[in-house]
Design a protein around this nucleic acid. Structure first.
Lengths: 239, 239
DNA sequence: CGGCTGGTTGAGGCATCTCAAACGCAGTGG
DNA sequence: CCACTGCGTTTGAGATGCCTCAACCAGCCG
C-alpha cells in the first residue's frame, strides 16, 4: 500500500476562499447563465465574437492556441475559479479554443454586464484584474519552464503545477487523473509523446511518482515536494 | 545599395492611432508622472510593491522573469503604448524586473488612481483591459513559437515580430537595431547564443536579412514577408 | 597597445526526435 | 466467450538538431 500524505477532507485554503468569494460575488451581483459541459465540449472557439467571459465553477479545461498556418498548441490549463476568454477582449473575438477536459460547469457572464457591475463594485473589478494578472504570471512561468528546463524536469514541473493547483483548491493531491494523452502533454510542454512517456517512466523509477494499478493514466504523487526536488536535481546535475 | 521598401515619413496606422488615443486619454484624465529612462535603467523590480503601472511613451523595454532557484528569462519585449506591470496586480507586488533597453520615457500612473478614473471613463477601462488581453495573446503566441518552431524559424519569427511591432507604430521596418546581445536573444527564444548567431548567418546567406556596414548588430530587413516565408519554408521542409 | 566584451565559426557530444515494434485495454461483433 | 480492431502507451535503435567547448576575430576603451 502506497504511503498517504493526507486523507483528510479538503482543508480550507487561502486560494480556495478567494475563489469562493469571487464566485459568490458574481452570483449575487452579475447576471449569468450556468452551463454544464462534458469532456470534449467547446466553451468557445477561436474567431467567435466575444460576448461572454466564463468562470469555471467546476471541472478542468484547456485553451488551444492555433496559428494561421495550422500549428496548434495547448496553451493553458484551467481549474475552478479561473476565467476563460481573456484572450478575446483585445479584438472582441476569441483567439483560442476553450475545451472541457472533463464534466464541469462554467458560468457565462456577459462582458458588458460585468463591466457595468465593476463600476459600482470595486472588489469585483479588483478580482477581475487579479485574475487577468495571474494568467499573465502563469504564462510567464510556463515560458520560463519551456526555455530553461530539460524534458524530464519539464514533465515533473508540469505535474507539480497540477498538484499545486489541486492543493490550492483544497482537492486531494496524492492521486491525480491526467485527462490528457501523452501527445497532449507533449504538445503543451514542447516535446514529443515518446519523450513524455520516457520522462514519466524515469519519474516512476526514481519513486517520485507512481502509477495506480491498471493503466498508467492515473498518477500517484506521494509527495509534491519530491517533484520540486527532482526539478532542482535536474538543474544541479546539468551544471 | 540595398533596396528600400519605404523611406516615407511614418504613415498613420490603426494601431498607432489607438496608442495615441490611449496616451492622450491618460494624459487628460489621470494624474501621472513622466520618467525618462536610459538603457539599463530599471522601471521596477520583482518584489517591489505595486503602486504604479507604467505605460511606455517611447523607447524599448524588456521584462525579465526569474524563478526562486535563480533561472531567469527575458519574458517580454515592450514598445510604445505597451503597459508595464500587469504581472504585479495579482499579488500587489511585481513578479518581473522591467528594464529599459534604450533611452525612452514611461508614464507612471498610480494603480488606484487609474481604477478610480476607470469607473467614470469607460473607454479608459476598455483600453486597459484590451492592453492586458493583448499581453496574454502575445505570450500565447510566444509559447506557440517556442514549442513548434525550430531554432532558425524561431529567430526569423522573432525578427518578424519586431518588425511588425515597428510597422504597427509607424516606424521604419527596413532597418532595425537590436538592442540585445545574441545571448539575450537566445535567452528569450530558448536557445544558446551560438545557435542565434548561426541562425542569423543562415538568414543572411538566404538573403532574408542583411547586416549593415560595420558590426552585425543592426539588421536590415528588406522585406518582412520574406521572414514569414522563411518560417513557413522551415515548417514545410520538416514535413 | 592590451584587455574586454560581443560575435562568428568549427568539431564533437548529447538530448531529443524519428521510426518502428510490441503491448494493454476497451469496445465490437461473431 | 473469444477474436479482432483501434487507440494510447512503452520501449528500443538510429538519426539529427542543438549544445558544449574552443579558437579566433572585431570593435571599444582605458
Amino acid at each position: 500500500m502506497p504511503p498517504k500524505t493526507t486523507q483528510n477532507p479538503p482543508p480550507r485554503t487561502r486560494v480556495g476562499e478567494r475563489i469562493d468569494r469571487m464566485l459568490a460575488l458574481l452570483e449575487q451581483q452579475v447576471p449569468m447563465t450556468r452551463r454544464v459541459v462534458h469532456a470534449g465540449d467547446t466553451v468557445y472557439q477561436a474567431s467567435d465574437p466575444l460576448t461572454c467571459l466564463y468562470i469555471i465553477h467546476s471541472g478542468l479545461f484547456k485553451t488551444v492556441n492555433l496559428s494561421p498556418d495550422g500549428r496548434e498548441q495547448v496553451a493553458g490549463l484551467h481549474f475552478k475559479g479561473d476565467w476563460l476568454g481573456f484572450d478575446g477582449i483585445a479584438e472582441n473575438q476569441f483567439a483560442c479554443d476553450a475545451i472541457a477536459m472533463d464534466t464541469g460547469e462554467v458560468w457565462a457572464v456577459r462582458y458588458d454586464a460585468l463591466l457595468a457591475a465593476c463600476t459600482t463594485i470595486p472588489q469585483l473589478l479588483a478580482g477581475f484584474h487579479m485574475a487577468m494578472s495571474r494568467q499573465i504570471g502563469r504564462d510567464r512561468d510556463t515560458m520560463l519552464a519551456l526555455c530553461t528546463l530539460p524534458a524530464d524536469a519539464r514533465v515533473a514541473d508540469f505535474l507539480r503545477y497540477w498538484a499545486d493547483s489541486m492543493e490550492q483548491r483544497g482537492l486531494r493531491t496524492d492521486q491525480i487523473t491526467l485527462r490528457m494523452t501523452r501527445a497532449e502533454i507533449g504538445n503543451y510542454l514542447g516535446m514529443k509523446l515518446e519523450t513524455v512517456s520516457r520522462a514519466l517512466s524515469r519519474l516512476e523509477r526514481d519513486q517520485v511518482i507512481g502509477f495506480t494499478e491498471k493503466g498508467r493514466r492515473d498518477v500517484h504523487i506521494p509527495n509534491v515536494r519530491a517533484l520540486s526536488d527532482f526539478v532542482q536535481r535536474s538543474l544541479a546535475h546539468a551544471a
